[in-house]
């Protein structure tokens, strides 16, 4: 039976292989003369070329162009139609009487986005790390049905932001399942998504729900890397479980948590899609973050002119924040590696 199934599988794989082999042979007809002309030594450049062209076109050139857009003004997307150079966008972006009060800024929407992002990232990342560690520690125990529980906690990671947003928008409706549960326990209905004081909390909750599995997985990998003989030794000494956790598990997990912290911050700062589907940044501006501002000013301003320059300038500000976080990540992950080598 197994044999027949394998034969069928191989048969289909072979059929699938035909167009692939055909394509590869066809490319070889070009590559062979190329190799004859430039020599084996220069072949790696040919192999690198397609990828580098894509990187150049869609990453490197845009990065340079972003500077240009942010430093030029005008309503046109074409380079030649824009006025150069100007710091107008940055002036406008940073034009505030007091940076602590978004209402005094010309671009109050941007500054609200900045403060919302800070608030969002602090709570989302903090709570997410707490729950990831808790979940990972529990999933690392010898429990019944461990595989099942692991996949349950991981599952939401694979859902698209639109799906996550719609599911939760519907559950958090005023007449939704959550309110039905609350009422059945004698509570009052809550407008989770339309009450400004609740909207941010709901958004943070949903975003943790959607991404926690990913970080749990990383923490779990870190937990499994802790040498089991440490636990055995502690157990033999009769150390209490609480003490084992705080004296062995947590300290050895620290380098891992640092990476999780920075990774989650990098992702958190760029959060857009779930919130866009869930609340659209509202009510008012209470859940709109920086990327929402970039998107709205650059692409979705209804009626008024799309302001590419302003969006580009805001992107640059976001870029600086991300650069800082990424450098931190590189620094710490390098530290982590060198520590591993020492052990």
């Amino acid at each position: 039976m197994e044999n027949i199934r394998n034969q069928i599988k191989n048969f289909f794989l072979r059929i699938l292989n035909i167009p692939f082999a055909f394509l590869m042979h066809a490319i070889d007809l070009i590559m062979w003369p190329v190799q004859k002309i430039i020599g084996v030594k220069n072949m790696p450049y040919i192999f690198l070329l397609p990828n580098l062209i894509f990187f150049g076109l869609f990453v490197i050139i845009p990065l340079g162009a972003n500077f240009f857009f942010s430093l030029s003004s005008g309503d046109e997307l074409l380079f030649t139609e824009r006025e150069l150079p100007t710091t107008k966008q940055y002036d406008q972006l940073f034009d505030c009487e007091s940076y602590l009060n978004p209402n005094t800024c010309t671009e109050d929407f941007f500054w609200r986005g900045v403060y919302n992002t800070i608030f969002f990232v602090v709570f989302q990342v903090g709570l997410m790390i707490f729950f990831s560690v808790l979940t990972a520690v529990i999933l690392n125990k010898k429990i019944i049905g461990r595989g099942f529980f692991r996949s349950v906690f991981f599952f939401p990671v694979l859902l698209s932001p639109v799906v996550v947003g719609l599911i939760w928008q519907w559950i958090l409706l005023k007449n939704g399942a959550f309110n039905a549960i609350i009422e059945s326990y004698g509570g009052d209905k809550v407008s989770f998504l339309t009450d400004p004081s609740w909207a941010m909390a709901s958004v943070i909750f949903v975003s943790i729900w959607a991404h926690m599995g990913f970080y749990t997985l990383i923490v779990l990998a870190g937990l499994q890397a802790i040498p089991p003989n440490l636990y055995e030794a502690a157990e033999m000494d009769g150390t209490s479980r609480e003490r084992i956790f705080f004296r062995i598990t947590l300290p050895l997990l620290m380098p891992n948590l640092l990476v999780v912290f920075i990774l989650a911050s990098i992702k958190g700062v760029q959060t857009f899609d779930e919130i866009y589907v869930l609340t659209g940044g509202g009510p008012g501006t209470s859940t709109s973050l920086i990327v929402q501002y970039i998107f709205t000013t650059g692409f979705a301003s209804s009626g008024s002119v799309q302001n590419f320059g302003l969006a580009a300038a805001a992107s640059m500000v976001l870029g600086v924040v991300l650069l800082f976080l990424t450098l931190m990540q590189l620094y710490f992950s390098r530290n982590k590696e060198s520590k591993h080598q020492e052990i």
């Binding site: 580098l52 990187f55 076109l57 869609f58 990453v59 490197i60 050139i61 845009p62 990065l63 340079g64 162009a65 972003n66 240009f68 857009f69 997307l77 990098i266 760029q270 857009f272 990327v291 970039i294 998107f295 650059g298 692409f299 590419f308 969006a311 580009a312 992107s315 640059m316 976001l318 870029g319 991300l322 650069l323 990424t326």
Partner: peptide
């Protein structure tokens, strides 16, 4: 290094110019 470099540049900070390209 070039490839690592592109790892550091997420789409969200180059939205406008990629749209231009």
């Amino acid at each position: 290094v070039f490839v690592i470099g592109t790892l550091l540049i997420p789409l969200t900070i180059i939205l406008v110019p990629v749209f231009y390209v």
